Amino acid sequence: MIELQGPAQAQDPAMRQSAKRHQILVCQTCRHKDSPCFPGLALLEKLRLAVSEAKGLGEDFEISGTACMAGCDRPCTVAWRATGKATWLFGDIDPDADIDALVDFATLYQRLDDGWCRAADRPGKLATSTLARIPAALIVTAEGQLQ
């Protein structure tokens, strides 16, 4: 097995992926009621492109499709998470109309130390389409220490 070091290590795709600090999850199973249309797939591709083109975001965000996030009554659902930050879940996202607001929220979330913000700080319909805000986890070790 070859061990990568220095510049070669930075070129390894697996290493680049794990170096990203923030993650955006897009539900791939979201669909319109009584329709075979899966708008989550379109949203995933549009969001990947928009974030990759936004200055300073593409290098710091991993954008992944995921299984159902239980927002079925309010498709499409999108979540933001990062170590040490609150996790956000939004619903009622339109793949065509809300891309700019999603990118703007990514920029905001990247700058927030703890991930917390007010509704008035969130762009577009993200101010009113919050399904959940989950505080960052505090993990207690067997020795009783917080991590």
Rank of each mutant, 00 (worst) to 15 (best):
Q5S: 14
G6V: 02
G6E: 12
P7D: 07
Q9M: 13
D12P: 00
P13E: 00
R16G: 04
R21Q: 11
Q23N: 10
I24N: 09
V26G: 01
Q28H: 07
H32Y: 12
K33C: 05
S35Y: 13
P39Q: 07
G40Q: 12
A42D: 10
L47V: 03
L49T: 11
V51D: 10
E53V: 01
G58Q: 05
S64P: 10
S64D: 09
T66A: 08
T66Q: 04
T66S: 13
R74K: 09
P75Y: 01
C76R: 10
T77L: 05
V78D: 07
A82P: 00
A86W: 15
T87H: 14
W88F: 05
G91Y: 04
D92T: 14
P95V: 09
D96P: 15
D96A: 14
D100E: 14
T107M: 03
T107I: 01
Q110T: 04
Q110K: 14
R111V: 03
D113M: 04
D113Y: 03
G115N: 05
W116P: 09
R118S: 08
R118P: 08
A120R: 12
R122Y: 02
R122W: 01
G124E: 13
G124M: 15
L126N: 03
L126Q: 03
L126V: 02
A127C: 13
S129L: 14
L131M: 10
I139G: 11
V140R: 13
V140H: 14
T141F: 03
A142P: 10
E143M: 05
E143T: 13
Q147P: 02
